[in-house]
């Protein structure tokens, strides 16, 4: 059970390295993005007396750098892989292995993320410097909310993979997902700045656990009981997504078996 999954994770990691020149460019793009946000927000804050929403400029910049790093690392690859494999029919090899399809995909994603982290490593000091990040007061809260947020992110992308069995086309859907999730994760603006209904919507969606929540914990905008509540809601999301995945997967698998016969 563990061996094949470890193998899948290794493939995911190697996949990341195979496209390293593209990845290097996107790391450069990440640094540029953080720089852009820094300059725009510094300009926005200039000349203001009080700190809006109780966020100092330093905390805000740290928040943005972290949220972007997180979003970069957690951006899922498996919808793309699944799309390709469903289109070319190679998905049947995945389905014929003794290990479940979804665990395989999850392992692939985990390996891919690990590879991404390795390659990102040289850029992290730069991003931290551009974003002026200082050590956090809630290291455990940050780690916990981020880890659970990552699990939510992987489960959401597994959902997209499974949808691919019906639509046979997940390229555009996964692009759409990436845009929507990045926006509602608060990678450009902290959710606390979202006005009215948009704020309510962003608060209700699970995307905030991939960006906003951990980063806000890190810079101290969320603390104490709020952290505990966030962790509890994250676990709730994971349980709910697990249920949905299980139900949809059963139907998808059924569909695949019929198509294959």
């Amino acid at each position: 059970m563990i061996r094949p999954l470890a193998g899948m994770a290794r493939v995911g990691m190697r996949f990341q390295f195979a496209y390293r020149s593209d990845v290097i460019m996107s790391v450069v793009a990440l640094v540029a993005q953080v720089f852009l946000l820094r300059m725009v927000w510094t300009s926005l804050y200039s000349g203001r007396e009080s700190d809006p929403r109780g966020l100092t400029l330093e905390a805000l910049l740290a928040y943005l750098s972290l949220a972007n790093l997180q979003a970069f690392v957690t951006t899922p690859i498996i919808p793309m892989i699944a799309h390709f494999r469903i289109r070319t029919g190679t998905v049947f090899f995945d389905l014929s292995r003794p290990t479940g399809y979804l665990p395989q995909m999850a392992a692939f994603q985990a390996g891919h993320t690990a590879g991404g982290l390795l390659m990102l490593a040289p850029a992290i000091p730069v991003v931290l410097l551009v974003g002026t990040i200082t050590p956090t007061e809630h290291p455990i809260g940050y780690a916990a909310t981020l880890a659970l947020g990552y699990v939510i992110s992987v489960m959401m992308s597994l959902l997209i993979c499974v949808i691919g069995f019906w639509t046979l086309e997940t390229g555009a859907i996964s692009l759409l997902y990436r845009l929507v999730s990045h926006f509602f994760a608060g990678t450009m603006v902290p959710l606390s700045f979202f006005p009215g209904a948009l704020g309510v919507l962003a608060d209700a969606l699970p995307f905030k656990y991939m960006g906003y929540v951990p980063a806000a914990v890190y810079v101290g905008q969320l603390s104490g009981g709020q952290i505990g509540r966030a962790v509890a809601v994250e676990i709730g999301w994971i349980a709910a997504l697990a249920g949905v995945l299980w139900a949809i997967w059963r139907r998808a698998h059924h569909k695949v078996v019929i198509q294959g016969g």
Partner: peptide
Amino acid sequence: NLVIGIAAGVAYQGSGFAFVWVVMHT
């Protein structure tokens, strides 16, 4: 594919401007 492609285009550019719009509320 085509319809989703157009939607993704609007969403991509929309999310960029949504940032400006959200910020300029404050």
